[in-house]
Design a protein around this nucleic acid. Structure first.
Lengths: 138, 138
DNA sequence: TAACAACCTACCAAATTAGTAGGGAATATT
DNA sequence: AATATTCCCTACTAATTTGGTAGGTTGTTA
């Protein structure tokens, strides 16, 4: 399951996506509109910025905005930045790979199943973008 | 990601699947062979039993065995019993549904994406069984 | 009745999650 | 230059989940 933090991230990003091209939005505005605790949101947006999904501007008239079009930000990327691995086992993860202890034959049988699962999941999450969220919301 | 507990469950179940039809296995045996902490394994096997995946027998000659053929135990079932929901959001889960707070339009756009993802994941996890793990392990 | 083996209740430590607090640094306006 | 504005950074905390452990109880078989 995605963490609450990740759900907050998606809510904030969707809102930013809806306002793409209209100038930056304030943290405080997003916080109120999307009912996300202000200071927590601050952390989240900052992480998204460090991952190059957002850009920010300080001072009056500042705020956050998407760095690229909502069509170019896919769901897998967001999940990886805020939530972590998408695969069900560390030894199957493409971006967060870790060898699993005591890996033997039967374990690797499981690994193969989880690889198939990961591929099916990624096929969706890498194709769908913030723009698809907005479109589906209508 | 699946918890360590779930990975232990899969290891134990694969071992039980390999020995299906050959009489019960001891917790202590599984613990040693699969390198799973004994007392922790005790809990896990008990949970699997309560979920009707295993049957047990006390006293000499006792132990645990699969209740049905490895072909009839799919991976989604195991994950649900030990790990919990498979969907990425509570409001998308079939077996652990929970309404998400402040659900609005944009949130529901996300919900639709996560429903598609869930379906793709389940298509694999409900089709694949313990038997597939054994076969893939060769 | 002894041994064996699963069962049950309760506890515990470490890690993760979901925040909060408070000041610092850059920017724009006056 | 001063002030207000807004993001940025470090650190802390409370609650929950995860990954176990301890020790006795109950049922089974020989």
């Amino acid at each position: 399951m995605l963490s609450k933090k990740t759900q907050y991230a998606f809510r904030a990003l969707s809102y930013l996506a809806e306002n793409y091209g209209k100038g930056p939005l304030l943290i405080s505005n997003i916080s109120v509109e999307k009912k996300i605790p202000l200071k927590f949101l601050e952390n989240i947006l900052n992480e998204l910025k460090k991952a190059d999904l957002l850009e920010s501007k300080k001072g009056k008239g500042g705020g956050y905005s998407l760095r690229v079009s909502p069509r170019k930000i896919n769901l897998a990327t967001v999940i990886r930045v805020i939530n972590g691995p998408i695969a069900l086992l560390p030894c199957v993860s493409l971006n967060f790979y870790e060898k699993c202890e005591d890996c033997n034959e039967e374990h690797c049988g499981l690994r193969k199943m989880m690889t198939i699962t990961r591929d099916a999941t990624l096929k969706i999450l890498e194709r769908k973008t913030l723009n698809d969220i907005i479109l589906a919301a209508v």
